[in-house]
């Protein structure tokens, strides 16, 4: 350190480290004030009895929460499969040399990505009115899977397209030089590598799908078909207490938090491979 540096330091009074310490001190002080004020002003008894009443947690478990939990997983899993298959098809169409395929895929993707998912669900709820003899098989699964899957396919198509384009060109050339027709090269060489690349973002899409499955109640399913949100809402309504909904909310975290860890683990693994 030179003499002039030392002079400047003195004039400002505080070193960068001292300033950082002071800033941290202020932040802690503000936090303590907020906590103290909240502790003294809030009606904790009422909050606890509205949001976290143990007997309602218990009644939620006995009156069908596990079933709703299972439904959420079933709805999500089926929609994920439809989204994955549809998304792969759309991604391949988007990269096709046949222009109309590209147009269709682009229009589809832009349309369903630009639309609030809830609009699609409202549309599905109105379908039986518009087409009286329309029967979507596997009720209620068929309708739910289709509604969720149609939107998911649009999101996944873009992810998968990026994955396909990230496969090095040399891989396709090697496949062609071995005499593989384009279809075989895509199926055996390109897609397996593309899916490895897009595994982390696809797992991310799965998390979004778990949450989107809550929109199912808009379609107007019967009580037996309720997933977590529908179940929690219904029970909270009848009990005039939010505890069932909070319980259902925690169930989502039971699904999404491990998935989030999975995404991070996959990302770390992908980073190591490079």
């Amino acid at each position: 350190m030179t003499v002039s540096d030392a002079v400047v330091e003195k004039r400002r009074g505080l070193s960068p480290r001292q300033r950082a310490q002071r800033s941290r001190g202020i932040q802690y002080a503000v936090l303590i004030v907020i906590v103290v004020v909240a502790a003294f002003t809030a009606n904790w008894g009422q909050i606890a009895s509205v949001f976290f009443k143990p007997e309602f947690v218990k009644s939620a478990f006995t009156s069908g929460l596990p079933g709703a939990f299972l439904k959420t997983i079933e709805y999500t899993a089926g929609a994920f499969v439809i989204g994955l298959l549809g998304g792969t098809l759309l991604a391949l169409m988007r990269l096709s040399r046949v222009a109309p395929y590209r147009w269709f895929a682009t229009a589809y993707i832009e349309f369903f990505r630009g639309l609030p998912a809830i609009v699609v669900f409202v549309a599905f709820s109105l379908l039986p009115l518009a087409f009286a003899d329309l029967v979507i098989p596997l009720d209620p699964y068929g309708t739910v899977w289709l509604a969720l899957g149609i939107v998911a396919a649009a999101y996944m198509a873009e992810v998968i397209r990026a994955g396909i384009q990230a496969v090095p060109k040399g891989q396709i050339e090697a496949a062609r030089s071995l005499g593989m027709p384009a279809g075989v090269a895509t199926r055996k060489i390109v897609l397996p590598q593309a899916f490895r690349i897009v595994l982390p973002p696809l797992a991310n899409d799965l998390i979004l799908l778990v949450k989107d499955s809550s929109l199912v109640f808009i379609i107007g399913t019967s009580a037996a078909a309720y997933e977590l949100t529908g179940f929690g809402r219904d029970l909270a309504n009848t009990e005039s207490n939010l505890t069932p909904l909070v319980t259902a909310g925690f169930c989502y975290l039971v699904i999404t938090l491990p998935l989030g860890l999975l995404v991070r683990w996959l990302e770390a693994k992908a980073a190591r491979a490079h």
């Binding site: 040399g170 030089s177 071995l178 005499g179 384009a182 397996p192 590598q193």
Partner: peptide, 24 residues
């Protein structure tokens, strides 16, 4: 046709600068 060209390529082996083995 692409299929016929693929058939012609089967008779010719190629080795690349960057190996291009299938990593999976």
């Amino acid at each position: 046709k692409n299929k016929e060209i693929a058939a012609q390529r089967r008779e010719i082996g190629m080795v690349f600068q960057r190996f291009n083995l299938f990593p999976h």
